[in-house]
Write a protein that binds this DNA or RNA. Structure first.
Lengths: 148, 148
DNA sequence: AACTTTGACTTTCTTTGACTATTATACACC
DNA sequence: GGTGTATAATAGTCAAAGAAAGTCAAAGTT
């Protein structure tokens, strides 16, 4: 079995109980006798939001990598939805998606409204216009992936 | 290892009751077995005005460092809170706000989590770093205003 | 070709220590 | 007793060193 797979398994075993792990990158690297960046590789390829993982970290003394499992129990094909969304989104297309999600009971109205605000032009006023639709898509997808 | 976190926690424990602490820098440093300036570091990074702390001090004999917490729950209304937030926000400061909002029942956990994701570095990956904290602040404030 | 492993380089956060600034107190002098 | 001055007791500042984690591309595998 591949090293990355072993590391993945190791991490998932820990997460199983509490839906959360806090790793020390270099310790883990030492444990598996690999370079630290291998850990990043494993995380980047296996603990992605599409699979229901949320990752946060801190550098410096006492640093950590924290992986949180967000409950995916509902739909199985979020990644299909995400794929379809693409990497640019106008405000009006967001509305269409949200209405769709509501009608399929994927989201409730309150949540949908919150998302709408988060990705509105008002929220993104400081993002330059050329970039805005792709930032909007990022936030939108991040939210969808983590909410559904 | 995470000395600063310990010191932060220690101070916050004391503040909790009375919304105020008066510290003796060198005693505290001795207690935590560190150099006095570490205390300044902790204060400078964790007890900032954006988070509702006001710090005053005096040197010389009988000197002190006094940290006063200006309670969010005492804010008259949302606009006070928004004002306090300022126009730049790091991810970690967002976390602190969200925890605070939860503890004052201003937000429920689910909503807070959604906001956290909406303004995470992951969502904002395409916003260039110089701008990111101010975009984050915009989205955050927009959401707060519309949710509360 | 796609996936994995490795390593050099970067960025961020923390700890430490030398040096500086301010305030209180003790003591001398009138 | 008031005034000025030295000394001690604090706290502040800043930069260097240390401790993680992140990035990215080259090399290796399948």
């Amino acid at each position: 079995m591949k090293l990355s797979d072993l590391i993945e398994e190791y991490i998932k075993d820990i997460i199983e109980d509490t839906d959360m792990v806090e790793l020390n990158r270099s310790d883990l690297a030492t444990k598996f006798n690999c370079v630290p960046s291998q850990i990043n590789y494993v995380i980047a390829t296996r603990f992605i939001p599409e699979l229901g993982f949320y990752v946060e970290s801190r550098r410096g003394g006492g640093g950590y990598i924290r992986i949180i499992k967000t409950d995916l129990s509902k739909s199985e094909n979020i990644s299909d939805i995400i794929d379809k969304i693409g990497n640019k989104l106008s405000q009006s297309v967001v509305d269409v998606y949200l209405r769709e999600f509501i009608s399929y009971n994927i989201l409730d109205e309150k949540t949908a409204n919150l998302i709408k605000i988060a990705v509105s032009d008002k929220s993104l006023a400081k993002v330059d216009k050329l970039n805005r639709d792709s930032v909007r898509a990022d936030i939108f997808k991040c939210l969808i992936v983590n909410l559904i």
